[in-house]
Structures are given as structure tokens and as C-alpha cells.
Nucleic acid binder design. Structure first.
Lengths: 338, 338
DNA sequence: TTGAAAGCGCTAACAT
DNA sequence: ATGTTAGCGCTTTCAA
């Protein structure tokens, strides 16, 4: 059996009414066009009988609007982005929009392709957390006039609106927190170097190290993955003089740290302290509840959506580059040492 | 500035060639129609210059195909489904399809709406893990001739193809494992009662209890959430005689258990054993690595996609209701007692 | 209060 | 080797 949906023409045939009348009734424009009650009833009844479902594709072609927002994230397997995707999807669906979610798999090539796909599908707007260091393809989309907002990851040098965490502040606070707890040998494990949040975090961290006169620190790592956290921690533990604290730049990295530390029978925080970016429900249930720098995920999503709709509705934006402060959630993974 | 993309008509105007020639070249049908090299070059060059992006909406309307697969899950915040979504999305994008992901938020009403939306968007196929107990809306979609496959959750009484875990086997194995480790007071915390996997798990569990002559067991709970796991565990712990083992029906429920147990200063597995459905990378890093019944998530996704494409391509299916056996991952949360 | 018809951008059957 | 044209299903202007 093949797909054979009914259309307004079918309804027109059955009812003997014109397609325009059908269209008007079905779009709630009955009173605007003073269509009689009984006509309306008939239309609705027949539509029901025929299992009519409007063909949005045709509608979109005509109207040039799709009521679709595309969301592109680097990795849905990362709970941080999965959460965001869930929130955005639910939020948008309240406003009658549908969400096209793409996973770029941290691969800029894929991201480019998906973006092209998405543009050719006439989405009304795009929310993207880009995975590469060059934003030319994204800027091209924007300059095409398609509403687009970056979230979490962004390009500082381009005019693309974004909403993200104040990562400099967050990393600085984190670094200060460690130093104030007596840590003098601090190892920072970062994520992908080309991402702006990572870069900014690193700067915030290094700034504080300098301010506080701490020279015995390291910054290593290259990916926001468990594997990277694991590998880098193993390397750190090979050293003669081990760090007293590890500052992880993501929850995934932190998991890798925990795994490596466990294998070395090192306890958190007695043997080594651990502070990480990203909060997550799971963190409460880990062997040691992790002290973390919680990004305001909720607000980021809400504001990103708000900005996007402003663009869609062509409203003037006072600000379109927003950074929100994270907050440190104190748990039990950082020790005071003397 | 407004969105003003160029179309094949623009290219036609600039090149002086007809729209059909443009269309043919752009669709790689040049040699089939013996279009000259230089014509091709011109078309490509001008398309490039005009930043031409094909309008898929128009294309879809014409062809009746959208190269889009919709994926509907009960909750993207649940890592189990987020993982699946990530996998499906990446898998499909390899085959040139794009994925429309919907989060029904465990709400059947929302699911219905999203489904309608999706149908009206002419997707080529639907993958759904339905959240309610009635499948009428889903069966209606199927009977409309739209390729549709259920995964994880499904309806046993309908003819809708599905791919899921052999939950009966999994739950039985789990129950046997507990009994064979000497447990005689076992509390099972289930998820949403209306979901088939939950129902089947419960039956598998109860069956083994009966076989093994164990009467001191309970089945409580009503949602696949952390909160439910937490609440139900608290209730269990109020009892005079506490269970020696808890069998949790999802990773989220297990997290709730852990939280409650921790609050009562009960150790896993010394004071109480914990076995859970669903595996997840995080489980390795919990205070006590959880012994879990790992569903073959990878295979479920792959097979569901395969079935879906069989339907799309109208191939005959030998089987279209597939159950895959999970496997128990032994970690350290179940104690032997005597 | 309702209808006829154009046209959104594309593809393909039918010319030539 | 390339062009003309109908039509996918819908909305909307213009007409009645």
C-alpha cells in the first residue's frame, strides 16, 4: 500500500465547495470571510472523514515559512547538549514550532553539510553550537538573511548573535576557589582548543594563576571527551610530583579523570582534588559528589530562543551577544590543603 | 534584510539556458541527457556565483519525498534516549537523510500533536518510542501507508513493526541472578506501568519469583524517573523488614535509589544490593559500579533503521517484530548473602 | 458568502 | 543536446 493522503481538492470534490473555501475554513478564517456555519460544519466533517492532514510542504512552499527551527549540536551523546536539545525542543513545540535536530558529531565537515541541508529546507531559524574554529559557513548562512543564533560555542570575532556562559568569569572563579583552598600545583585538562569557550576558560584560568603567583600549573588535553580526561589524567599521574588539584573543563573530561584516579587508587579529594565545568544530575551520585561550575543551561536556551524569535520577527535587538554567569555548586571533591 | 535565495529560474535567466537544463545539470543527470561540458560548467559557475541552494521544499512537493526521517522519543533528557537519538541521527545522515527529532516529554497528548505535525510534513519514515498505552494514533499513521517502526517501547497487540529488548528474558535473568545470590526479599521498582517493556519486565520478574518459591517480593513505582526511584526507595526503607535487594527497571530509577540509600547511610552492596536495567557510561563512575542489564542499544537502532528502510523501499519483511537479548554487565552492586 | 486562478520552485514527460 | 509545460497542494488576490 502506498501513502495516499487526502487533500483539500478531495474535500472540495466531496463537499462540492471550492478549494479556497476549504482552505479558509481549515485555517480558521471562516468568520473573516463570513463563511456560513453549516458550510464550516460540512468542511470539518468531511475533513475528519477523509483523515485529512494538511500538507505542510505545499503550505511552506506557498508561504515561504516552515515553522521549523533547526538545532545543531556537536554531540547528542554529551548529556550537556542532550539536555539543551530536550529543552529547546519542548520550548519550541509550545510555540507551534517543530525542531530539526542535527548532531554534527564534533565534525566540521558534517556540520557544513547539515547546514546546507537545513538551509535548503527553508527552516525559519537556526540554533547552533558550532564545532569548528572557522565560522565562515555560518556567517554565510546569516548573511543570507536566515535568522541564526549561536549558543554555548560561538565566534567572538563575527557578528553572529550568541548566548553562552561567561566562561572567563567561571574559570577564574574556579581557579580562585582552588587557590584559596591552598592548592599550588594545579593541572587543568581542557577540551577542544579551537572552541571559544575552551579558549576563554583557559585564559581565565591562566590569568588567575598569574595573579596569584602560581607557576606550577599545566594545561593539557584537546577534547571534550571521557577518553581525553582519562588519558590526560594518566599522563599527569606519571609525573614525579603530582598536582594536588585537577581542573576539568567538562563533565565528560571529569568522568575520565575519575576513572583514571580510581585505577591509581587515588581518592578524591583526599589524594587529589577535582573541580569541573558543567553540572549534571548524575554528578550528585558519583563516588564523590563533584564540585562543579554549573552553566545556566536553562537560561541559555531560553535567551537563545528569544533572540532567535526577535530575529525572525525582525525586531531590533539591543544586545545580541549575551554571556551569563555560571555558579559554583559546592559538593565534596575539593579539599583544603595547607 | 530579508531572505532572498536564488533559484533555478535566476540561473536560467543569467545563463540563458532553460530551467530544465539547469535542473538536470544540478541533479547530476548531465550525461544521461548528453548535456555539453561547457554548458555544465556555465551552470555550475553561475549557481556558485548566485549562492544557489536548492529549495528542498519545492523539490519535496514535486517528488513526494522529503529525505527526512522523524524520530520521536519520550525524553531526550534521559541519557538512554539521547544516546539513541545521537546514533540514529548520525547513522541516517550517512545515508543522506536528515532527522527530525521530537521529544514527547512522556506526554501522550504532545506525542499525538507531534505525530500530526510530522505526518503533515511528509517525512519518509518514522521511528518512535511511544509513551502511552494506546497505539491507535500510531496505527492510524501506519495504516496511512507511512513507514513506521517502534523501538524500545511498542505495542504487542498491534501490527506495528518494532525492535526492542527481550525484556522478559532480561528481567528473568536479573531476577534469577539475585535469587542465586541468596536474596529472598526483593523489591522491584518499576517505571511507567503502561509501557510494554515495563509490563514485560514485571512479568519476567514475577515469573521467576514464583518459580523460585519466593513470596517476599514487592513491585512498586510508576515512572522511569529519578524522582520515582528516590520516593519508592524511601518508602521501602520505612519498612520494618527491609529488602536485601532492589531491582530497578531503569538507570534513572537506579539513581533515585542510590540517592535515597545514601541518605539513609546504607551501603551498596553491603547493606542492600542493587541491580538495574539500562547500561550507561556513567554507571562505571558511580560510588558503586552498578551491575546492570545492558540493552543492545546499538543493535536496536541499527535494526530499527534497517526495518524502516525496508518499509520505505517496499521490500518484504520476513520478521518485523524483533526482540534482542540484553546482557548482564557484572559490576559491584550485588552481594552474595547466605 | 463563495469561487477561479495564479503562483511558490522544482521535476519530468513530452517536445524538438 | 536543450526547451516547454504541467502539476505537486496550498494560499490568496481578485472577482462575483
Amino acid at each position: 500500500m502506498s501513502v495516499k493522503k487526502s487533500n483539500i481538492k478531495d474535500i472540495s470534490k466531496v463537499t462540492g465547495l471550492s478549494v479556497s473555501t476549504i482552505s479558509r475554513v481549515l485555517n480558521g478564517k471562516a468568520k473573516q470571510y463570513r463563511i456560513s456555519e453549516k458550510t464550516q460544519e460540512i468542511v470539518f466533517k468531511v475533513a475528519e472523514e477523509l483523515d485529512y492532514v494538511p500538507n505542510q510542504v505545499a503550505r511552506n512552499l506557498k508561504l515561504g515559512k516552515t515553522k521549523t527551527i533547526a538545532l545543531i549540536v556537536p554531540s547528542l551523546s554529551n548529556p550537556f547538549f542532550a539536555n539543551m536539545a530536550a529543552q529547546v525542543s519542548i520550548e519550541l513545540q509550545k510555540t507551534g514550532y517543530i525542531t530539526l535536530i542535527s548532531d554534527s558529531n564534533e565534525n566540521e565537515e558534517i556540520e557544513r553539510e547539515e547546514l546546507t541541508q537545513i538551509v535548503s529546507r527553508n527552516v525559519d531559524g537556526i540554533l547552533i553550537s558550532p564545532c569548528g574554529n572557522y565560522g565562515d559557513h555560518i556567517d554565510r548562512v546569516r548573511s543570507l538573511g536566515i535568522p541564526l543564533v549561536c549558543f554555548d560555542r560561538y565566534y567572538a570575532n563575527l557578528e553572529i548573535p550568541y548566548v553562552s556562559t561567561d566562561n572567563f568569569w567561571g574559570a577564574s572563579e574556579g581557579a580562585r576557589y582552588l587557590v584559596e583552598h591552598g592548592h599550588k600545583r594545579i593541572a587543568c585538562i581542557q577540551g577542544s582548543k579551537q572552541s571559544v569557550p575552551n579558549e576563554v576558560r583557559r585564559k581565565g584560568f591562566e590569568e588567575v594563576m598569574k595573579q596569584k603567583g602560581i607557576s606550577d600549573f599545566t594545561v593539557t588535553g584537546s577534547e571534550f571527551t571521557v577518553q581525553n580526561g582519562y588519558t590526560e589524567t594518566l599522563l599527569l599521574l606519571q609525573k614525579l610530583v603530582k598536582p594536588t588539584a585537577i581542573f576539568s573543563f567538562s563533565n565528560t573530561i571529569a568522568l575520565g579523570c575519575i576513572k583514571a584516579l580510581k585505577e591509581f587508587d587515588l581518592r578524591i579529594p583526599e589524594d587529589i582534588s577535582l573541580l569541573t565545568f558543567d553540572n549534571h544530575p548524575y554528578l550528585d551520585y558519583l563516588s564523590v559528589p563533584l564540585t562543579s561550575i554549573a552553566q545556566p543551561v536553562n537560561d541559555i536556551c531560553k535567551i537563545a530562543i528569544k533572540l532567535l524569535f526577535s530575529l525572525i520577527n525582525k525586531e531590533e535587538l539591543s544586545t545580541n551577544q549575551v554571556l551569563l554567569r555560571p555558579k559554583i555548586i559546592l559538593r565534596k571533591s575539593v579539599n583544603s590543603i595547607s
